[in-house]
């Protein structure tokens, strides 16, 4: 009746490796800052004395199409990053509020994808032949759906008064859980052949206990790594949807939406393009660094080698 204890989720050895990984630390710090900015957006905007909706018409050169007056997109003591061409809305406020949408939607979508993917994947892996092949076909179907095209059509048909950020996260998750599910199923299939899992099953543990006590801990490392890679992907999808105009509704800002408006201004006011592009670039870089660090520290194959 003895069962070998499953590997702890994140071994202390891995933590130590992560701490030594300069790429991971840099990524984690930037990502942490992004999340902090998103969480404290109202506070930061208040600190700057600005909000993201007020128009400042006097700061624009209307005769030249509405470009901000002054260098670098109209940077001043009041408008730290200048103002938006065409409206005069404060760019600092829009950028930090944009972080809420970009980071928030990406995190929520990733969380939902993991929840959905792991549930289906583990069920397929542990279930019988029929359940497995049934769920596997569903996973195949989800994986074969072109995410952007499908998301555009889904977002176009829902009523407008639904809260957009929640909707965006839900749509991205519903269309994107296939990968997590397939990964979870594969890992579960390999884990269930392990002695300790077999022992638990022989001992008569119900399937849900097996899943929770024996399988999930073993899944943590690969799923964590995979989720860290999903996060930047989801951020790009959100930016893409907002860029195409089916994302958040005005006047809510998001980096993708800012990038979209900026395309008409990139010669007249290049600084405006630069801001959301830089933020997206930094966020993506940070999350990819984190994911790579996690993979290096947690990859089972590498773990085997270090054992």
């Amino acid at each position: 009746m003895t069962t070998a204890p499953p590997a702890p989720p994140v071994p202390s050895r891995a933590l130590a490796a992560l701490r030594r990984d300069r790429g991971f630390v840099t990524g984690a710090v930037i990502a942490g800052l992004m999340v902090l900015v998103a969480l404290t957006a109202p506070l930061l905007a208040a600190l700057a004395g600005q909000d993201y909706t007020t128009y400042h018409d006097t700061l624009l050169d209307s005769a030249r199409g509405g470009v901000p007056i002054g260098g670098f997109g109209g940077i001043s003591g009041e408008h730290w990053l200048g103002v938006e061409p065409g409206t005069g809305r404060d760019l600092f406020a829009r950028l930090v509020y944009g972080a809420q949408v970009s980071v928030g939607v990406a995190v929520a979508a990733t969380f939902l994808e993991v929840l959905l993917g792991v549930t289906v994947g583990v069920a397929a892996g542990l279930g019988g032949r029929w359940l497995d092949s049934g769920l596997s076909r569903v996973i195949d179907l989800v994986l074969s759906v072109p995410v952007l095209v499908m998301a555009i059509s889904l977002l176009a048909i829902v009523p407008q008064d639904w809260p957009r950020p929640v909707l965006l996260a839900a749509v991205i998750a519903v269309l994107g859980w296939g990968g997590t599910a397939r990964l979870s199923r594969g890992e579960t299939l390999s884990l269930r052949t392990r002695d300790y899992v077999a022992a638990a099953q022989v001992a008569g543990a119900p399937w849900w206990r097996v899943a929770r006590r024996e399988i999930l801990p073993g899944l943590t490392a690969p799923i964590l790594t995979y989720a860290a890679l999903l996060l930047p992907t989801n951020m790009v999808v959100e930016a893409g949807l907002s860029f195409l105009g089916v994302g958040v509704r005005p006047p809510t800002p998001s980096w993708g939406q800012m990038l979209s408006t900026a395309t008409t201004w990139f010669r007249a006011d290049p600084f405006y393009v630069f801001l959301p592009a830089l933020m997206l670039f930094l966020a993506l870089l940070a999350f990819v660094l984190v994911a790579n660090g996690l993979r290096r520290a947690l990859d089972p194959r590498q773990r085997e080698l270090t054992r």
Partner: peptide, 11 residues
């Protein structure tokens, strides 16, 4: 003024 700017400016 903000409507004019939204439509491309006074030109």
């Amino acid at each position: 003024t903000s409507v004019v700017n939204a439509l491309g400016g006074s030109a």
